[in-house]
Design a protein around this nucleic acid. Structure first.
Lengths: 168, 168
DNA sequence: TATTGTTATACTCTATAACTATA
DNA sequence: TATAGTTATAGAGTATAACAATA
């Protein structure tokens, strides 16, 4: 390993360190803000479900559980409450009568859109205090970080791609 | 508002949008990884307590609740379990006999240190896939973001500075 | 009387295990 | 028989309200 490589590795460690610290900061602030920012009929667990349904319409319950890293029974209960709120729809799959197709309702999508908008306003509040150059760096850095995370998730990814358990 | 200012605002919105998206991504992945990465005797709520005790040794229960955005009774229970794990110590305050001083034990600190280290390794895994320039941008952007968030937290900050309720 | 922390009660989240229906 | 989803039961997180001890 040459000099450049060592320096590069140090840089990568700095980035990992900075990321971990900001994540911790947000773990405290973001969760605290859940009921301050939103009118909060939705818990953070329910919100995680909504994020995934937003991306992957028609996913079944088992697969949703794998993506969440949660047991099927937990997901079933979460969906119960989201259904009771009118945010999630459970319909039988055409492919297999023992599977469900889960999706956000129009109300669920509207809630998510509104929440996201309010969160971005809250973030903007902080970001307004940043110098322009740092904002540009943040945008570039996060875009690349996001791609990297999506390719090599920091946490082990359960089956999913090799199982084809969903509607397959 | 001039042209530069409008362009700057658009940039800030882009940054807020990118931040919100990465936060959502991590809300799913980070939580899922909790028991994969760690040996996980500690829930994410308990972890939030530990973060704060790590920064603010000797904080009392009420103030801790304010920082967490949680009710005193909830914090009391959380501390029960962290105490049972041997990670948190409750000692009477010298200032007021009805207050507690909360702090991490040596074991608690060691656990946190180890967890952080493992998380940074996990993050490094993803960051290794980023180009060097993006890593630099990420470090700069996050440093500035962190300062901005600490000065103007995206979520309302409860009293704390104007209450002097802690050991005051 | 006001404040700090705990306990009582109730609801949500989570998991394991048992169950039903389908493949 | 194996798989998708639900239900039973139990432990943890959360909040409100009632309580004890202290200021």
């Amino acid at each position: 390993m040459g000099v450049n490589s060592a320096a590069s590795h140090r840089r990568a460690q700095d980035a990992a360190h900075a990321s971990r610290e900001v994540i911790e900061l947000l773990e405290v602030l973001w969760e605290r803000g859940r009921d301050a920012v939103s009118s909060a009929p939705v818990s953070s667990s329910q919100l995680r479900v909504m994020y995934i349904l937003d991306r992957d319409e028609g996913i079944n319950l088992r697969t949703l559980g794998e993506v969440l890293g949660a047991a099927p029974s937990s997901v079933s209960r979460l969906c119960d409450r989201l259904h009771a709120l009118g945010f999630v729809e459970r319909s039988p799959s055409q492919v297999s009568r023992r599977e469900l197709q889960l999706r956000l309702t129009a109300r669920g999508k509207a809630y998510l859109r509104d929440l996201r908008s309010r969160r971005e306003v809250a973030l903007l509040n902080a970001i307004d205090g940043m110098p322009a150059s740092a904002r540009t760096a943040l945008i570039e850095g996060l875009a690349s970080f996001r791609s990297a995370v999506e390719e090599a998730p920091p946490i082990r990814v359960p089956g999913r791609s090799e199982r084809s358990s969903r509607t397959a």
